[in-house]
Design a protein around this nucleic acid. Structure first.
Length: 650
RNA sequence: GCUGCUGUAGCUCAGAGGUAGAGCACUCCAUUGGUAAUGGAGAGGUCGAGAGUUCAAUUCUCUCCAGCAGCACCA
């Protein structure tokens, strides 16, 4: 007689079963209909396949499609398998690799000589729907390693063999079948393919991806798909993507006449008057904040001799990302090899090293709006978010190791205030810890990592841990913001660096009258003006806060008899510090309103015969349909108030 | 850098082995119009760059450059 186990259901009731009972059997024992509707179980908080036996007492909940989280996970995961099966049914010689669930969907990596075309995607999608309609049962078994390896070797699936070899020896290998199609997989999966909604998924794109994420290995073809519980959710998602495309900073940058880029200067920005207005406003704001935050501002050279880069270690570790500047042999009076600075830190140490510093000078917070050039890989460039020429709101805090926590907390608060001023509430902190290749003792890493973690907690912010992602010289905090389609961008950062002061021999005299080595905190709030403005545009869909809008007000004449009044009001607005323009073109007001609305001008003041007569303006704010008429004398101070940067408001 | 796709007027795009087209924008003319496109006319292109095939290339082939998506990179 087999042993009995007790399972506790979500309502608290307990039932006794033979050990080895499966959730499928449990579900059917509760109700036949539940047995059919079941998709998986949650057993002691673990996501559990309906076919996996349960051998010990446990809490169990049967999941159905009403349980969104497991449902989505299973739908997407089963679709990954169904897609791989479809691909191999159409092209039997394609090799399969891995296919995980990701946000909104899944991907699967294939090895195939010929590229998948958009038409192929259509064919695969069609085949997938056929497979779903077959309602093939999903079956699972645990296999012995050597059997599994032999199986895949015989089938000519080298990637699967490699995957199995990488799985720790004591871990059971699980196989899944969707119909006759087999894949190595941890599971869990659905009961049968028919449980996948056939109308709520879509194959999105094909792209290259390295096997095991290693650029030295084979380039595979990755097909991305998205899937939801129903057609409506899919439609909403696709709609959201369309809306997001309208917020793309590259598109808005052109439409709002902010900047452009061109072939002759890849990865570098031509700022137009409108864009440069935003840039300088942001810089002015940051300059005020930094002064208030206890920073001194400096400026350092662009072109610096390789000797300094050799000393700092950049020549060794970063050279392939640097623009090297060599003067033509014939014209050179001296044989100097220079590089455009990719970072400001070595130059800041040079300033620190001028004159003897005392512990009384620390912490010394040195800031620079530092123009940097980095030869970024061509494939990494992206609008103004990832560029080769950019300006950081850089800063270096020279302090002692004991100051790290306090300085970090101070910095996080500083950054949070600025992000809030600029309209960001949704940002995350990531703490990257010691990588495999590193310098410094483990004790030192322990201390410094703890200092950063403590600082986050003291400041009241949760952080995500990125183990092993730190710089070789020290751990770092990354502050990331999200673009229109959900891609994360690192903007702010704080990195602890005991290495550079060592290499460039920075010292200060302590209270003990001995020389000591300062620690350097590299830090940036915006990261770079370029990236941050890109994010700012996407976050606000181009409708920048009034104080940052390049053109704040357009005064538009409805009839040409109002032109003089318009010009006069524009003068008065400008005198009050408001960026105002007149529109006295020979066009209808409809035309003007449309054009300036598309140009994201926050306020349009329309003026016709009545307004001239009464000394009023008709105000229309961006995004609002209705207008209101009020006296210009009242309007001006209101607009002036709105135009005040957040840090200067009373 | 890698894989795939793309590059035609300022913008968005159509087109075909026989040296190019639309809409918007631009210029001019008419229109003075009340809150998201007034009408008409005109001008505007080495079809990303270079080479090859061809009687003929913007179209086909190759190389390069740039952009897009993803991967890798982002000390």
């Amino acid at each position: 007689m087999s042993a009995q186990i007790t399972l506790t259901l979500p309502d608290g009731s307990q039932r006794s079963f033979d050990a080895g009972v499966t959730p499928a059997e449990v579900a059917t024992s509760i109700a036949t209909s539940l047995g059919k509707k079941a998709i998986s179980a949650t057993v002691d908080d673990q996501h559990w396949d309906l076919q996996w036996p349960i051998n010990t007492d446990a809490a169990i909940a049967i999941n159905t499609m009403k349980d969104a989280e497991p449902a989505l996970k299973l739908i997407r995961h089963d679709l990954a398998h169904i897609m791989a099966r479809a691909v191999q049914e159409i092209w039997p010689d394609v090799k399969v690799t891995i296919g995980p669930v990701i946000d909104n969907g899944w991907y699967y990596d294939f090895d195939r000589k010929e590229p998948f075309t958009p038409e192929d995607l259509g064919a695969i999608e069609k085949k997938m729907k056929e497979i779903i309609n077959l309602r093939d049962a999903v079956r699972t078994e645990v296999w012995e390693r050597d059997v599994a390896i032999k199986y895949y070797e015989d089938r000519g699936e080298p990637y699967k063999v490699e995957l199995i070899e990488a799985i720790p020896g004591d871990e059971p290998l699980r196989m899944y079948w969707h119909g006759d199609w087999q894949d190595l997989c941890r599971g869990p999966h659905l009961q049968h393919t028919g449980q996948v909604p056939a109308d709520a998924f879509k194959l999105m794109s094909v792209a290259g991806a390295y096997w095991r994420g290693d650029s030295d290995r084979a380039m595979l073809q990755r097909i991305y798909g998205v899937a939801f519980q129903n057609k409506e959710d899919l439609r909403k998602y696709l709609n959201m993507l369309e809306e997001a495309a309208k917020r793309d900073h590259r598109k808005l940058g052109r439409e709002m006449d902010l900047f452009h880029m061109q072939e002759e200067a890849p990865g570098q920005v031509f700022w137009h008057p409108n864009g440069w207005t935003v840039y300088t406003l942001l810089q002015d704001y940051m300059r005020r904040k930094q002064r208030g935050g206890g920073y001194v501002e400096v400026n350092t050279p662009q072109v610096v001799d390789r000797k300094l880069w050799e000393a700092s270690g950049h020549w060794d570790k970063y050279q392939e990302n640097m623009f090297i500047v060599e003067v033509d042999e014939e014209h050179a009076r001296e044989k100097a090899v220079n590089a455009l600075k990719p970072m400001n830190c070595p130059c800041h140490v040079q300033i620190f090293n001028q004159g003897l510093k005392s512990y009384r000078d620390l912490p010394l917070r040195m800031a620079e709006f530092g123009s940097c050039n980095r030869y970024e890989p061509s494939g990494a460039l992206h609008g103004i978010m990832r560029v080769r020429g950019f300006t950081q709101d850089d800063g270096h805090i020279f302090c002692s190791e004991d100051d790290i926590t306090a300085e970090t907390k101070k910095f996080i608060d500083f950054l949070a205030e600025i992000y809030a001023d600029l309209g960001f509430t949704d940002w995350t902190i990531k703490l990257s810890t010691r990588p495999e290749k590193r310098i410094g003792s483990d004790e030192s890493w322990d201390r410094v990592e703890a200092a950063l973690g403590d600082a986050c907690q003291n400041a009241g912010y949760a952080y995500e841990l990125l183990e092993g992602e730190g710089a070789f010289y020290g751990p770092k905090l990354e502050f990331t913001l999200t673009d229109a389609i959900g891609r994360n961008w690192q903007c702010g950062t704080l990195q602890v660096d005991p290495n550079l002061p060592e290499r460039l021999d920075a010292t200060f005299v302590g209270s003990d009258n001995e020389r000591h080595r300062p620690v350097m905190l590299h830090r940036a709030v915006l990261g770079s003006f370029e990236r941050f403005i890109g994010i700012l545009i996407e976050e606000h869909a181009g409708k920048l806060p009034f104080w940052l809008a390049p053109r704040q007000v357009v005064v538009a004449a409805i009839i040409s008899d109002a032109n003089d009044y318009v010009l006069q009001k524009v003068e008065e607005l400008r005198a009050a510090g408001i960026r105002a323009e007149a529109d006295i073109r020979n066009e209808k007001i409809n035309y003007k309103v449309r054009e300036h609305s598309l140009g994201k001008v926050p306020v349009i003041l329309a003026v016709g015969a009545r307004e001239v007569e009464e000394g009023t303006v008709s105000i229309r704010r961006l995004g609002e349909k209705q207008t209101s008429v009020q006296s210009f004398a009242e309007t001006l101070p209101q607009l002036a108030e709105d135009a005040t940067p957040p840090d200067l408001r009373s």
